[in-house]
Design a protein around this nucleic acid. Structure first.
Lengths: 209, 209
DNA sequence: TAGATTGTTAATCGATTAACAATC
DNA sequence: TAGATTGTTAATCGATTAACAATC
């Protein structure tokens, strides 16, 4: 293993490997070669071996990879075994949908709480998650160890929230608003779900052949 | 203009350009150089000029780009002026959230209808969009010109829906389920929103410095 | 053992950046 | 005119693919 710099492209492929390996596990497949995994995922065997070799030696010559083992390794690299904790800010339709439907636990996350300004939802629970008032956000973050904050608030509110929480030591944001957040500190990681960028990409593709 | 092959990387940047140009328009900025746009977007001026030059000559030496004009050009390339029509399949929490909150019109899309199996929602309207029974989906698609189908159904149902709609001529799918859809026909474009891939990428980044 | 398949090095390909003549 | 900035060609950089010795 040569611990090189891991490129963004490689990182983006890891969750996809993990997803396919989960599939294979569920199907009871015991071993797989880079060649057949490549066929399934529509990438070259070379790339698969290169990608894995960034992190270690997970295979065996003449055999391939043990699916269960490889799945565990990649899960470990992604941190799914780390019991990360997160909170959701903004319990509108989207925040609601995430809390109700998204399988956070599958990615190793526990949802500790949700926050909102509306008196109508504050005090209720969603999927056993308490909805707390926005006022109490900073105090809450001071006493609980929170790894990631999910941003499902109106976009006007979001940069200010990020600035304040960054100062309190939050290092991960999952942003669903349609703006480009700024994180001064390079330690702070922001991952965006830009619905409109995605739809516009599709729009381009159907418009141009 | 040299009409070369447009790489995936370029296409992915277009919506981001469009977003920033909308910002600039809203702020009343009249002209911008590749250099200052680059500063704002944190990419090189070279890349910006290269990207735009794939599609035409939108600037003027010594001046830069007219913001309003460039915005219109890129909007046109993305197809936002094409009045695309879409339907939403699956009106659970997420489908509901999209119909209620997402500004489809901003990307040039009109939502014509939603479909669901549940008698509880069929017959209602959401944001003036009628919710129709799944049974009527194929008949509906045969008589209405639909460009994109939004997939917010449980993942067990989704590949079958895609296969059937592909046969009826649908060429664009916006997939929110956590599976890798297969489109035999290369004309069929599938754009995925993989929440869990995104969250796992964030997980990796906070776990590894 | 022979066949299969790895991990890794080298070759290729493509994308990003730099440079600069053209020109507003 | 002089300064600024484009569009484009050339140079660089990085990512993907191919090849192959090592070995299970």
């Amino acid at each position: 293993m040569k611990k090189q710099n891991i490129s963004d492209a490689v990182i983006r492929r890891l969750p996809r490997y993990y997803r396919h390996l989960n599939d294979l596990c569920a199907k009871g497949v015991v071993r797989i070669s880079s060649h057949s995994l490549g066929l399934k995922m529509d990438i070259t065997a070379s790339q698969i071996r290169q990608d894995f070799s960034c992190f270690g030696e997970f295979g065996q010559q003449g055999y391939g990879y043990n699916v269960e083992e490889l799945r565990a390794e990649i899960g470990h690299i992604l941190g799914v075994d780390q019991d990360h904790h997160l909170i959701v800010i903004g319990v509108g339709n989207l925040g609601h949908a995430l809390i109700q439907n998204f399988r956070f636990a599958q990615s190793g996350f526990t949802v500790d709480a949700a926050f909102d300004v509306s008196p109508q939802v504050v005090g209720t629970t969603l999927n056993n998650i308490p909805v707390l008032p926005m006022d109490s956000l900073e105090d809450y973050v001071k006493v609980h160890k929170i790894d990631v904050v999910v941003l499902t608030v109106p976009k006007a509110a979001v940069q200010d929230i990020v600035d304040r929480l960054t100062q309190l030591g939050i290092r991960g944001f999952w942003n669903f608003t349609n703006i480009e957040l700024e994180a001064k500190d390079p330690e702070v990681k922001i991952e965006n779900i830009h619905f409109s960028d995605s739809l516009l990409t599709l729009s381009y593709r159907i418009a141009n052949n």
